[in-house]
Design a protein around this nucleic acid. Structure first.
Lengths: 229, 229
DNA sequence: GCAAAAGTGTTCCCTGTACACCCATGG
DNA sequence: CCATGGGTGTACAGGGAACACTTTTGC
């Protein structure tokens, strides 16, 4: 690209920060990393990084997420731009926050060690640096409203999952219990689930049938939106 | 503030662009300005400006809007960060888009002349510079979903308005007709409207009663959200 | 008196919600 | 045989959607 022609204006650092949600079968969690350097060394933080001159913020968010998790093709969405003048104690940095949904089982323990990362249940988040707590809260809100109209909750689950697991997920996102019969009827009526002839037997004696989603119908609803819950 | 301590990273220009919606009683419109300088001189554009080092993007958006309209206390909300590397042909600029709702009658003709600004109905928007068309489209989508759950449509109306005007507004936002009886029942059931003993007689022989909204109840719903339409 | 827009109720269907018992299995 | 969690149906209520005629008034 050419040299900028806008010469008389202030330039600022632009960062991205990622709120990474995961679900372990019963709890909704966020992936945080421990800062290994000052300031705020030892405090927990969202994963983030600076936006390079030759990449969009979307690209930067994907890059950061890949560096820190090794994962590709992750569901990710821009959340909000946080820009308070003093939000970062080290200088003027505005941050574009993104939230991502990942299947917690795909995240390797190896990477967890390398980056001093840890999954925290949303109801016991430690102190976070800067305005990262605000980001997390906003991401939670956004996830709640998004999930009501788009079947993105599935991004948080493994390829095959049981109805009780799915229900647990939605209960975790909404932080409130749902009626089992009503929930089952609703999700099955969408016609995006295919029942497998196989049971998950870890969590109960009887065992719960696995389901997978019908990729075609799923992406249709994903795109169009539905009243989901 | 201190000097930035992050020295080894790229800095970029950050702009804000404002999508300003107005309603003239029958059509939903956007306020655009004609670029008086190259590049793209003569093309239409959203109102925008650069973010200074000592202000947040919210503050910048408020400033820009004030400079160009003379208006204060406008309903405004952050829309999205647009950051494609080549979105601005003159350099690397990311832009935080905001959308604003104003009462079209409050906008002075004087300012319109000064800035070569014009209101365009949403269905006949001219070519816009850069990615401003994308911004406008996204703002329209966001307005539609926002308005479904929050009574912000009122921001677009004068202090007193008639039910037919209100209905016109919602029909304009949704780009589809609504049933008069159902609409009336619904909005009156929210209990945020007070009927005046005065009629608007411009647009019909019979005349339509004016309403104002009950400030207290209105702001409650404004904040909490309701299923509005 | 007529044209033009305002105002006003009822019915039906669908969807959301509340609610309780039997089933399969492992120990 | 018993404890645990999985799976299933029905009844009621409330809200959304469809629908047409009367009223007022300026010309």
């Amino acid at each position: 690209m050419d040299i900028d022609k806008y010469t008389s204006h202030d330039r600022v650092l632009v960062a991205v920060d990622c709120i990474i949600f995961g679900f372990d079968g019963s709890q909704l969690k966020a992936l945080l990393i421990k800062r290994g350097f000052e300031p705020e060394k030892g405090k927990w933080s969202l994963m983030g990084g600076f936006v390079n001159r030759d990449e969009s913020t979307d690209e930067a968010a994907i890059r950061v997420l890949h560096q820190l998790t090794g994962m590709h093709d992750i569901y990710m969405e821009q959340l909000y731009c946080f820009s308070d003048v003093n939000r970062d104690s080290e200088g003027r940095v505005i941050s574009i926050a993104y939230y991502a949904l990942i299947n917690i089982a795909d995240y390797s323990e190896q990477l967890q060690l390398e980056h001093e990362a840890r999954w925290f249940p949303l109801n016991s988040i430690p102190d976070l640096i800067f305005d990262h707590k605000d980001m997390l809260e906003k991401a939670k809100d956004r996830l709640q409203q998004k999930v009501a109209n788009h079947p993105i909750g599935f991004e948080l689950l493994p390829g095959k999952f049981t109805l009780p697991q799915l229900q647990n997920l939605y209960e975790a996102i909404y932080e409130s219990p749902l009626d089992k019969r009503n929930f089952t009827r609703k999700v099955l009526s969408l016609g995006i689930l295919n029942k497998l002839n196989e049971k998950e037997k870890e969590s109960s004696r009887k065992g719960a049938f696995y389901y997978v989603f019908d990729k075609a119908k799923y992406s249709k609803l994903h795109h169009e939106g539905v009243k989901f819950i």
